[in-house]
Nucleic acid binder design. Structure first.
Lengths: 309, 309
DNA sequence: GCCACTGATACCCACCGGGTATGACAGCGC
DNA sequence: GCGCTGTCATACCCGGTGGGTATCAGTGGC
């Protein structure tokens, strides 16, 4: 309850400095990024190390390397800084139009661009019909940015797709589950098949799987590097790659595409997720709406049991 | 990636100050708790409000009240402060004996006192047999303190019991699931029954259910207020209350107790949980050991399917 | 050898976080 | 009514420290 000061707690300024140095592994560049001179930065890091009683960086001959403790602080520091900026953002939004009524009247919902479609539309419609509905702003995210947006306070709630997204660190409710399709160039021999297995489209020499960045870095491999769905769609149309997408992703299908069901791909499960602590009435209402919407849909449609893993 | 400064991010000092004021709802007492004088605290909060462009507190005639934005910042601020102290603690532990090898050699495992027993013993034994095993310190927690210990960095990993504990905000793996028992005074009429339902032991005038604090406050009710298992055990032995405990909690049964299976109580699911980002090799190895241990146990014992909800 | 480039040190200044004294204002008792 | 008490805000001062510039001290490359 009582948060101790001084020795036990780190200032976000110190964390910003350390994270910058740890990411750049170079005091000069880190200082430049921080908009300050190098000497005070060096001193600040030294003070931090002395206060923690721990060696964070190994300064050998040319450059800097992280120690084990440094790696821990980099990870924890990022999380703390995310929490701090999220605190600022969410507080600003909560007091935005200075609504004296007490309840915030706006929710930011992060979704992956070109995903979910009907689910999103149904959710927005159903929620808008609620008597206490807040205004919902839809924040379009590329790739798996919903996680970052939720973490840093840019969004209040997100639609996530497991296993593409990770729910780690968030509260969530499952909304729907669906199979996946292989999307091939229409002229490809495999495009004539009724169904495909994951093995059928793995390691095809003519169609290497595209690679997208996880946390900013691309995994090594033969396939092309992409960073959004449109690029992927074009590459498929050009006959350069094969894509695996959820069944409901037909929104961005092109005439040059052939979509074949994958019999053994892991199901894609759509969740509604939100930061652990925040649970405003408006957010709770949106979540309730989403869960009711999907449970009613599942009972009307024949519920299909999906195989596990 | 790049953490903006100044306007966008809050200093932990500001958050400490605001949280203190928001909890005390009194500048004088908050200042005293913070070990400082009241005027600079008032000024700091004003500066914070100006920087955020948001009104956090309503200062009406006598005392202070939180605005909606203030409530948001209280919750977000606590989370941020927890993250900051956790960063300091975990970094200190990681660099503790200044192990230059690179890997931290110690894990703190938070468990509920007088719970898990065999599972804990098996886990510690199995992990110690691993070639890369780190030293494991067992941190005994009362009630649901494992969550707080994990959040504030006092522990690296915890055994949690859903629904008593909440896994919100943590990564976790399920380890085992078990039914619950009603623990009655041995002489009580119901103690002769073979099984009981939850309804049977609800609202008994002679055995009101004990109340323990959630987040420091007791819910209202007729039952006695307790804060650890021993108190509960004694109250049952004295014929003052009835307890509901997991089947495996026989460790603290007394001769004066009678344990009757509850047919319709929700199952208690034991998870191993850890903070979302941290995933050191030692931690990963402990988690792997735990999961393997329990999956092998479940296949050797006849797996019992538990009813949902 | 020198040079380029790294991070560390030395020194100075200005800002601001914190202290004390006091003010403004509201409720309450006589 | 007036003054008392308790609240938070204001005024003012001071010292610590965060940040700047100039410079030093290693180290690898040519």
């Amino acid at each position: 309850m009582a948060y101790a000061a001084a020795v036990d707690t780190l200032e976000t300024r110190e964390l910003r400095y350390f994270v910058a140095v740890a990411e750049e592994l170079h005091f000069g560049r880190a200082a430049e990024r921080l908009g300050m001179a190098q000497p005070p930065l060096s001193r600040a890091i030294q003070q931090l190390e002395r206060r923690l009683g721990v060696c964070l960086l190994e300064r050998n001959r040319r450059g800097v390397a992280l120690t084990a403790a440094g790696r821990v602080l980099l990870s924890e520091g990022r999380a703390t800084l995310d929490a701090a900026t999220a605190a600022a953002r969410r507080t600003r939004r909560a007091g935005g139009a200075d609504n004296p009524g007490g309840a915030r009247n706006r929710l930011v919902l992060a979704v992956k661009t070109a995903a979910v479609h009907e689910l999103l539309q149904n959710l927005l419609d159903a929620y808008a019909a609620q008597p206490d509905a807040a205004e919902v702003e839809v924040l379009q995210c590329r790739m798996t940015d919903q996680e970052a947006r939720l973490r840093d306070g840019s969004a209040d709630v997100a639609l996530m797709h497991v296993p593409y997204n990770s729910l780690a660190g968030f509260d969530s409710e499952e909304l729907m589950s669906e199979g996946q399709l292989a999307v091939l160039p229409a002229g490809h021999p495999l495009a004539a098949r009724k169904t495909l297995s994951v093995a059928d489209i793995t390691d095809l020499p003519d169609l290497p799987r595209a690679r997208w960045p996880r946390h900013g870095v691309y995994a090594p491999g033969p396939g092309p590097e992409i960073h959004d769905q449109t690029q992927l769609a074009q590459l498929v149309a050009l006959g350069r790659t094969v894509a695996v997408v959820p069944e409901s992703a037909h929104a961005w299908m092109w005439p040059e595409h052939a979509a074949i069901p994958l019999t053994d791909a892991p199901p894609v499960v759509t969740h509604i997720a939100w930061p652990t602590h925040s649970r405003s009435p408006a957010l709770a209402s949106l979540i309730r709406t989403a869960v009711q919407l999907e449970s009613s849909r599942q009972t009307s449609v024949t519920a299909r049991r999906l195989p596990l893993g």
